[in-house]
Design a protein around this nucleic acid. Structure first.
Lengths: 217, 217
DNA sequence: TAGATTGTTAATCGATTAACAATC
DNA sequence: TAGATTGTTAATCGATTAACAATC
């Protein structure tokens, strides 16, 4: 079974839950729990048990009837599916407050995803230095030459919204295929490039809206 | 029309788009664009034009047939809906790298949402000091007394995942009704408390999964 | 075997999109 | 009036959930 074929037809809603499944099984293994079942998983991650079983069934028969799921087998399965075995190097553009926090953020678990280089404009005094962990902060004028023909295919954008599209264009020109975008704007990229946006203001507004809607009752 | 009643029955998918609509109209007004239509909006935010018209129609007749929408009227409408006129004070718990970045993050636009106080455990040397902007950083032991009977009903949690549930419990006990959670764990709270989670690792893993699924073709 | 829990089908629900009459 | 674009209904799509036979 090449999971490749399956990944492609996977419902988007299921794909977005994969990291949660992975993390859950990883935690359970760490806690020495060897088996579990869909009811317990449901309680832990807040997804209906039937949805969980249906998701899993898209990958074949991952469990045993009358028994449940082996945590270790499932952890390894999802780790493989998410490529957690492979080292993934990531570039970060925009070393402001948020960018610095992200450089230091441990994208946790045993995942081998980490920021290995950062960029900003010459005006930023940090350009030319390294972080305490040894991550170099380059001038953005070096980005294309550094990243083209490197193994870096993923970038994090934490620049001001006014500069985000221009940075995205530069990243695309440099061969980047995935962007985690923190700027509150829509980025236009070719269709073979993926953008995942995290919009802090939007999340906060949504929260406040739900709170307001509830208290208005 | 009391928008109160409408907000309650609003589809969740629509509610989550409201901040985008607000921001778009705000930007258009700032750019001196006075009118627009659903096709243009669709291009700008990447949502189907029919979906946009349907969303808007839930609030009554916001546009004019054959003409489109007045940007200023719509901006004001969504500002009101999202409570952008009211000052919203927010507490932050967990003054690490991410917490400091969030304290300095301008939750932008003209929105009056801002962090006005922060908390951490005594071990954090920043406790007892103020940020450059004058935001006090208190000992978490003062949280309940400070927040109870204050106007603060919203909190941001940026502590380690091991401490997140305990912090959530404390916040709930102090009268907080909305939590923006950055810790990668599910928080259990009473049903009148809203939790909006931002899980950076999960977003990055999802991005990488989609990239992988595409390149495996 | 009896009990438990999966995997899967069918039913339901909710969200998106197409289509077009209403009307500015 | 002719042209444009909304507001809304009906059709479609996708995701969730209920139910239960299969089977460990």
């Amino acid at each position: 079974m090449t999971e490749t074929k399956m990944s492609r037809n996977l419902p988007k809603a299921t794909a977005k839950r994969l990291p949660q499944y992975y993390r859950l099984f990883k935690n359970l293994v760490d806690e020495k729990v060897t088996r579990t079942n869909s009811t317990i998983i449901s309680e832990k991650i807040g997804v209906d048990a039937a949805t969980i079983r249906r998701d899993f069934s898209l990958f074949g028969e991952l469990g045993r009837r009358g028994y449940g799921y082996e945590t270790q087998a499932l952890r390894d399965f999802f780790a493989d599916l998410l490529g957690q075995d492979q080292e993934t190097h990531i570039a970060l553009v925009g070393v402001g407050n948020l960018g610095r926090a992200l450089i230091n953020y441990s994208f946790q678990d045993r995942n081998k995803m980490r920021i290995t280089q950062a960029y900003d404009v010459a005006g930023n005094p940090l350009v030319g230095t390294k972080t305490d962990d040894g991550i170099p902060i380059f001038n953005i004028s070096d980005l294309e030459k550094n990243i083209k023909n490197s193994d870096i295919k993923t970038a994090i954008v934490s620049v001001r919204k006014e500069d985000a599209q221009q940075v995205a264009d530069l990243l695309v020109a440099s061969g980047i295929k995935g962007i985690l975008n923190f700027a509150p704007v829509r980025l236009y990229v070719p269709e073979d490039v993926f953008v995942q946006s995290i919009d802090l203001t939007k999340e906060l507004q949504t929260l406040l809206f739900f709170m307001g809607a509830a208290s208005d009752k």
